[in-house]
């Protein structure tokens, strides 16, 4: 995992003490592994996300996953999430907001005979 992208390539570098230096997180589910024991998982500092199937699902950095493996847990990696901005195509443009607002304002004025003018 040492060849993963590192912090410092971001406009806001955060070297951290391990957790924020990687530019990727992984969604994984945690399983007992050879020990067959999941009881210690509640003691482990790793960020859990809701899992409708009842599994222990985490969003974790590579070194957190490494730590879990060292502790004997079995990990199923489901997806990698590079640390990156929201897809710009999902961000509303100012022009679209202005159009939405104008449509709303015209509807208010039309029906109320000038309210808000």
């Amino acid at each position: 995992m040492s060849d993963l992208p590192q912090a410092g390539q971001s406009s806001e570098p955060e070297p951290g003490r391990g957790r924020e230096r990687f530019r990727v997180r992984f969604e994984a589910t945690i399983h007992p592994g050879a020990s067959g024991d999941l009881s210690r998982i509640d003691e482990i500092e790793v960020f859990r996300v809701p899992s409708p199937d009842g599994q222990i699902r985490v969003l974790a950095t590579p070194d957190e996953l490494e730590h879990l493996i060292d502790l004997g847990f079995e990990l199923h990696l489901h997806r990698a999430y590079p640390i990156r901005p929201l897809d710009p195509s999902l961000v509303e443009t100012d022009e679209a907001v202005q159009r939405w607002l104008m449509d709303w304002h015209q509807a208010v004025r039309r029906e109320s005979g000038g309210a808000g003018s």
Binding site: G16, G18, R19, E20, E43, E45, V46, F47, R48
Partner: peptide, 14 residues
């Protein structure tokens, strides 16, 4: 802090 959904570790998302 219970069940690792709450954390005293500043690096944790919770």
């Amino acid at each position: 802090v219970q069940d690792s959904h709450t954390s005293c570790d500043a690096c944790n998302m919770a």
